[in-house]
């Protein structure tokens, strides 16, 4: 670089370290709170080092549930979150890779129309059409089901656009070669295109898993049974009670558990995560 001054590097280290500490602080406090008993947390004098009730609190949160207000153990909610998040990710990939394949590799009437029908959905997040969507899901008898949690959220243009973009970069020679070998469209898709798309599939999976896991408004609306709630909703329900009575140590244990899977995905699959994030936003 231009001028190299040790002092400037020192400043950079200091600023970044400070930022990282500030970022980590709320999570650290939540973790500490999840290792004490209710009385210590409610007293308002939470120590800054973890206490000794960690295993007990997490065990209670996951398998037993709270004594007063939380009906379902978090284990059930975690399972619901996993099913929903994986369902959304897989569903999105499935429908969008097929539609992108049709749009890029075929010529047929209304091709442009189909593309635009899909493309326009980019502009309408769930939040602007919540009640009518709720009504449709209720009419289809999908309230309190995994289908109701998953299907309305897998309709979106991002996946189709991403795969379309990737397919455009696949050389035409590959298609010609497999034609000479006598392969039909489905054979070409399965043997040639899909293996080439695996990185894109994985990147989209990572992004959509996080998106699905963190959903809030939609699961809040369509789950009425506690046993169908996702973990993100569960925490809110735990705290919707007079403050003095909320079991904060369990709520914080739940918050830590709710953060772990998506944060682990970002940390351990960082390369795919960054790729997915940058490409879905183009």
């Amino acid at each position: 670089m231009v001028e190299h001054r040790p002092l400037r590097d020192l400043v950079a280290y200091a600023v970044l370290s400070l930022g990282i500490l500030i970022f980590a602080f709320p999570v650290y406090v939540a973790f500490v709170a999840s290792t004490y008993d209710a009385a210590t947390v409610v007293s308002g004098n939470l120590p800054l080092v973890p206490g000794g009730r960690m295993l007990e609190n997490y065990y209670r949160a996951v398998f037993v549930g709270g004594s007063r207000f939380m009906n379902e153990p978090v284990g059930v909610l975690l399972l619901n979150s996993f099913v929903t998040a994986i369902g959304i990710a897989v569903g999105k990939i499935f429908i969008s890779i097929l539609s992108a394949f049709a749009i890029v590799y075929f010529r047929f009437p209304f091709r442009k129309t189909a593309f635009w029908i899909i493309f326009i959905t980019l502009m309408l997040p769930v939040e602007v059409r919540i009640y009518p969507t709720y009504k449709i899901v209720a009419d289809l008898r999908m309230l309190d089901t995994y289908a109701g949690l998953i299907l309305p959220l897998i309709a979106s243009a991002t996946g189709t656009l991403l795969f379309r973009q990737f397919f455009m970069t696949v050389p035409d020679e590959l298609l010609e070669a497999s034609r000479i070998d006598g392969a039909g469209p489905l054979r070409f898709f399965w043997d040639t295109l899909l293996p080439l798309s695996m990185t894109t599939v994985a990147a989209l999976f990572v992004i959509q898993f996080i998106y699905g896991w963190n959903q809030y408004l939609w699961p809040l609306l369509i789950t009425t049974k506690d046993s169908m709630q996702t973990i993100v909703i569960g925490i809110k329900k735990m705290l919707t009670t007079t403050d003095e009575l909320a079991e904060w140590q369990l709520a914080m244990a739940t918050a830590v558990l709710a953060m772990l899977p998506p944060v682990a995905v970002v940390v351990f699959m960082q390369r795919l995560f960054v790729k997915g994030l940058v490409e879905t936003e183009k």
Binding site: I20, F23, P26, V29, A33, I235, L239, M259, V263
Partner: peptide
């Protein structure tokens, strides 16, 4: 620096509220 992206908005809210 980037991990907070993965935290659900509702959970981020609960952490700061606490």
């Amino acid at each position: 620096m980037i991990w907070p992206y993965a935290v659900a908005p509702a959970i981020a809210g609960v952490l700061w509220f606490f």
